[in-house]
Amino acid sequence: MAAVDVQSVRKIYKRDSQEIVVLDGLSLEVPEGEFVALMGPSGSGKTTLLNLIAGIDRPTSGKVIVSGTDLTTLSEGPLAKWRSRNIGFIFQFYNLIPVLTAVENVELPLLLTKLPRKQRRERAMTALKIVGLADRSHHYPRQLSGGQEQRVAIARAVVADPAVLVADEPTGDLDAKSAEEILNLLQTLNSDFKKTIVMVTHDPRAACRAHIERHLDKGVLMTTVERHDVAAPVGAR
């Protein structure tokens, strides 16, 4: 079964009286456990497609089926609940809550569960260990480097153990070394934890880490590059 199955999706934005077609009948399948990179020029619809897969936006027409659920049939409340259980979202600018420590940020998705405080904290610490930041758990975002912030954001994305991770240019705001670490981490999550990853990127070096590279242009999927020889993450456990 495909982890992500986007069927003939159109997304049209209305700006005043003007209609802008962002996605034009796009279809995409991402098998379970795959690591897919979406590439394309600005305005090609990459982020819009990612948002549809993450269930934070709705298509004008077509279907978006993720982990067996047709997101287009869900109303606002059930869709939010579905997101909390099935999607881990990684933003370009990390988007950590500045007033919360690293562990509190990671714990945020777990507040929606019925887990007692102790278990929530334990799971958050486990997620921080996975990203190698257990020792910075009580640091605030302002006390962390960009790469560390993104790792905390990744811990937050995986803490509720979602099947699918979506990442919107996760290395776009990082220096080369930090970007490398983040890509290693994503690869580890894909290979060791069997997470399906859909990543939007402009960076060809980042795209090379994915098994499949899909190129979009003007809302249409153009080319596909498949790799079966992706190197193991540098420094992977």
Binding site: A54, I56, E76, G77, A80, K81, W82, R83, S84, R85, I87, F89, F91, N95, I97, L108, P109, L112, R156
Partner: peptide
């Protein structure tokens, strides 16, 4: 605003 968007992305219902 970003924080609110993040909370909603994480699955926080609008009512919460």
């Amino acid at each position: 605003r970003t924080e609110i968007a993040v909370l909603k992305t994480l699955g926080y219902p609008s009512a919460l």
